[in-house]
Computed example of a mutant assay.
Amino acid sequence: MAADARLTSATLVAALRRRVTAEGGFATVVVRGDDISGVILVQALERGRFTGLFERVPNLDGNYALMPCGPAPEDGAEALDQYIARRRRSDPDLWIIELDIPNAERFAAETIC
């Protein structure tokens, strides 16, 4: 693979879904974005309780990191819904994937970063 080649967003999301499911968790695509280069947001849940929202972002060394974004879990569902609506208006190519598994952030970071 060429040094500048990278996996598509669709491939990364599919791999994450398979990995979470294989570990006994639940993963679903809430919003399907651009297959090639859509930004990926991960809604982390544990036993149905929202624990955080994370975005896959490029870092300075040319790789990717998973960074917290959006409202804190204690801000409630309405704040999360409003944040996601704003993000979708400004970026229609955005992916949103929901993971319900302990340590969802770790699973996502290990798979898509």
Rank of each mutant, 00 (worst) to 15 (best):
M1L: 11
M1H: 09
A2K: 15
A2V: 01
A3F: 12
D4N: 12
A5F: 08
A5K: 05
A5G: 09
L7R: 15
T8K: 11
T8W: 03
S9F: 03
A10G: 03
L12G: 05
L12D: 02
V13S: 06
A14G: 06
A14H: 05
A15P: 00
L16I: 07
R17G: 10
R19H: 04
R19M: 05
V20A: 12
V20C: 07
T21P: 01
T21R: 09
T21Y: 00
A22E: 09
A22C: 04
E23W: 00
G25C: 07
F26E: 05
F26N: 06
A27N: 03
A27F: 06
T28L: 11
T28P: 01
V29N: 05
V30N: 06
V31W: 02
V31E: 11
V31G: 04
R32A: 14
D34V: 02
D34L: 06
D35I: 13
I36T: 15
I36R: 15
S37Y: 00
S37G: 15
S37P: 00
G38R: 03
V39S: 14
V39H: 08
V39I: 11
L41N: 06
L41D: 08
L41H: 14
L41I: 01
V42C: 04
V42F: 07
Q43A: 11
A44P: 00
L45I: 01
L45Q: 11
L45N: 11
R47Y: 03
R47H: 11
G48C: 08
R49G: 04
R49A: 10
R49Y: 02
F50T: 00
G52N: 03
G52K: 05
G52D: 02
L53F: 03
L53S: 06
F54C: 02
F54W: 14
E55G: 10
V57I: 14
P58Q: 08
P58A: 09
N59L: 09
L60V: 00
D61L: 13
D61S: 11
N63R: 15
N63Y: 09
N63H: 12
Y64G: 04
A65R: 12
A65Y: 04
A65M: 10
L66T: 07
L66M: 12
L66S: 08
M67F: 10
P68K: 09
P68E: 14
P71Y: 04
P71E: 04
A72S: 14
A72D: 12
E74I: 11
E74M: 09
E74R: 15
E74S: 13
D75K: 12
D75W: 06
D75S: 14
D75C: 10
G76T: 01
A77W: 02
E78S: 13
E78Y: 12
A79L: 10
A79S: 11
L80D: 01
D81N: 13
R87C: 14
S90D: 13
P92G: 06
P92F: 01
L94E: 00
L94T: 02
W95R: 11
I97F: 01
I97L: 13
I97C: 07
E98M: 13
L99K: 06
D100A: 10
I101T: 13
I101A: 05
R106N: 14
R106T: 15
R106D: 15
F107H: 10
A108H: 04
A108W: 02
A108I: 04
A109N: 13
A109H: 12
E110C: 07
I112M: 07
I112W: 01
C113Y: 00
